[in-house]
């Protein structure tokens, strides 16, 4: 099934401009409807920010997109594939093309930076030679400006550096889409701005599309082509930063105060 999915991804992504389609998705934890008919599309090359209050289900949404959570209803199509109908190998084929930057970075503590970057390559890209893998690692680390950390352990790096390494780990697979889960949370304003710039550079150089979960309005302003506001499990509003900032709706304007 994985080979079929890979073929469909190649064909599907050439055909249309929508790389991720989220259609009336519902997700419930206990009695709480975290997602209640959320609908949105991510266009090719677009940077879409999902804005919402803490606990509103933003992270749950992108974890549903990558298949870490199963949805209770609705459909999610990633690169033309309905992820709910994919088996484990099919999901892996999708995940090779969709990077995920975790809020906590999720670098493997017991591995060096090199091993952290090698790990997804060894798992997803079995045909990559050792020399090619090494070149990719070195090039990707150079892109995030941390080539000198290649043999360091994650515990030796600052929060901002760990964030860059985590981004490098997603980029090493040359993904078509990157999902960012609060990429600037916990960082000082200068480092947060650097990360936002790096995200824009990555978008441009790697031709990626991205969904960004964030509360950081400076990051949102810098990175967003469109913003979707997630409220009560639904897409409450959608528009550009300027459109939403000028909104008179209190529920929207509260994010921009």
């Amino acid at each position: 099934m994985a080979a079929d999915v890979e073929d469909n991804i190649k064909q599907g992504t050439k055909k249309g401009d929508v790389v991720i389609s989220i259609d009336h998705v519902t997700k419930t934890f206990g009695k709480r409807n975290v997602l209640d008919g959320f609908t949105i599309d991510l266009q090719r090359g677009e940077s879409l920010v999902v804005l919402g209050r803490s606990g509103s289900g933003k992270s749950v949404l992108i974890k549903c997109v990558i298949g870490l959570y199963k949805t209770d209803g609705g459909t999610i199509k990633v690169l033309g594939q309905d992820i709910e109908n994919l088996d484990h190998d099919g999901l892996d084929a999708i995940r090779a093309n969709v990077g995920f930057l975790f809020q906590s970075n999720a670098l493997y503590d017991s591995m060096t930076v090199r091993e952290n970057l090698e790990f997804p390559m060894r798992r997803h890209l079995k045909t990559v030679s050792v020399a090619e893998a090494e070149k990719r690692i070195v090039d990707t680390l150079a892109h995030v400006g941390l080539a000198h950390t290649i043999d360091m352990m994650p515990s030796e790096l600052s929060g901002g550096m760990q964030k860059r390494i985590a981004l490098a780990r997603t980029l090493v697979l040359n993904p078509e889409v990157i999902l960012y889960d609060e990429p600037t949370t916990g960082l000082d304003p200068v480092t947060a701005r650097e990360i936002s710039t790096l995200m824009n550079d990555t978008q441009r150089l790697y031709n990626t599309s991205s969904i960004i979960i964030s509360h950081d309005m400076k990051c949102v302003e810098k990175t967003a082509d469109r913003i979707a506001i997630l409220m009560d499990g639904k897409c409450y509003a959608i528009g550009t930063f300027d459109q939403l900032r000028q909104s008179k709706d209190e529920k929207i304007s509260q994010f921009f105060e």
Binding site: I66, L68, F102, Q103, A106, L107, Y108, F119, R123
Partner: peptide
């Protein structure tokens, strides 16, 4: 436990590993 709360287990799954 530490891997779980720091999302390393999720990262492993995303990296094509069971």
């Amino acid at each position: 436990g530490s891997m779980k709360v720091t999302e390393q287990i999720d990262a492993m799954e995303v990296s094509g590993t069971n």
